[in-house]
């Protein structure tokens, strides 16, 4: 029983990391339909922001707290710039978008190598996040609990923005019917840029979280990006609750299988399960019903 609980917690914490990375994608890929291969590099930008901050702020706790909003702004600004410079010209050409953003991804990785060097670097975690909490025989790592809390906080924030604010209504309207939004008086280009800013900013926050569980390197984002796209597709394109359920389900499945088999076998089984699921339900876990196509 203890093993099951421990593995489940490990799975949930893996899911939380996946969720944080996938959240930004639910906006840029799920809502806007842009396959942004440079999303992983925004994660990297968030992580390096933490690294740079820690060089100037000696307290790991303070630098982490400052890094969260700052990484959001840095990665968000990079995303908005990418949207303004390139992506907005390619909205009707998904294949070109994929290739162009992949090129940008490679350029950003090289830029990171030039600025910070090719070897991975590390940041120090605040003392409060280095220990464990035990409840009975089950152990919870503090850093993993922090990431779980951060992921849930981001989900809550994003949900509130999308559902209850004028900006959220505008984002949803532009996604659903761009021309109608434009003739309803909405400056759709501006909404696209803000959506991309938020989506990319969330990737930056994910990057900060990843510094607590692993090293920082130029290719760190690429390692996660495929799994994050899978979360969005399996959850149902543009569906936040689908992404939440899928991220945790994949995390737990991966963790349990890793315990009973090996890491590679677990990965293969999870991918086969996803392929089988999408054959049965191509639209993903959640979809919305409508009477009209408009």
């Amino acid at each position: 029983m203890t093993v099951v609980l421990n593995q489940s917690f490990t799975g949930i914490s893996i899911g939380a990391v996946l969720l944080l990375i996938a959240l930004g994608l639910t906006l840029t890929f799920g809502q806007m339909g842009v396959i942004n291969m440079a999303h992983g590099e925004f994660i990297m930008a968030g992580a390096y922001t933490t690294y740079v901050l820690q060089k100037s702020i000696s307290s790991a706790g303070v630098s982490l707290l400052v890094a969260l909003p700052l990484a959001f702004l840095v990665a968000g600004a990079m995303g908005a710039l990418l949207e303004w410079l390139l992506i907005r010209r390619l909205y009707t050409r998904p294949l070109d978008t994929l290739l162009v953003t992949w090129g940008v991804s490679l350029m950003l990785q090289q830029l990171a190598r030039d600025v910070f060097g090719a070897p991975n670097v590390q940041t120090a975690a605040p003392d409060i996040l280095t220990g464990n909490i035990s409840a009975g025989s089950v152990t919870f790592a503090n850093n993993r609990l922090f990431i779980l809390g951060l992921a849930l906080l981001c989900v809550l924030g994003l949900t509130l923005i999308l559902r209850f604010t004028p900006l959220g209504r505008r984002i949803r309207a532009v996604v659903q019917n761009r021309d109608l939004a434009e003739v309803s008086g909405i400056a759709t280009g501006q909404v696209d840029r803000i959506t991309f800013f938020i989506g990319s900013g969330l990737a930056g926050v994910a990057g900060v979280a990843l510094t607590l569980v692993g090293p920082i390197g130029p290719t760190m984002g690429t390692n996660y990006i495929v799994d994050a796209f899978l979360v969005v597709v399996v959850g149902g394109i543009g569906q936040l609750k689908g992404a939440v359920i899928t991220a945790f389900a994949l995390g737990v499945l991966q963790s349990v299988l890793e315990y009973s088999t090996t890491v590679s076998v677990a990965k293969v089984v999870v991918l086969v399960a996803i392929v089988a699921f999408l054959q049965w339900r191509p639209q993903g876990l959640y979809t919305l019903r409508t009477r009209s196509l408009a």
Binding site: P166, R169, R170, R172, A173, Q176, N177, D179, L180, A181, V183, S184, G185, I186, L288, T290, R291, S292, A294
Partner: peptide
């Protein structure tokens, strides 16, 4: 526009509040 267009996943109230 032609074809009774709306924002299908927004509620009636949200369609109006949007404007």
């Amino acid at each position: 526009p032609q074809g009774q267009q709306s924002f299908p996943h927004l509620t009636t109230a949200e369609n109006l509040r949007l404007v």
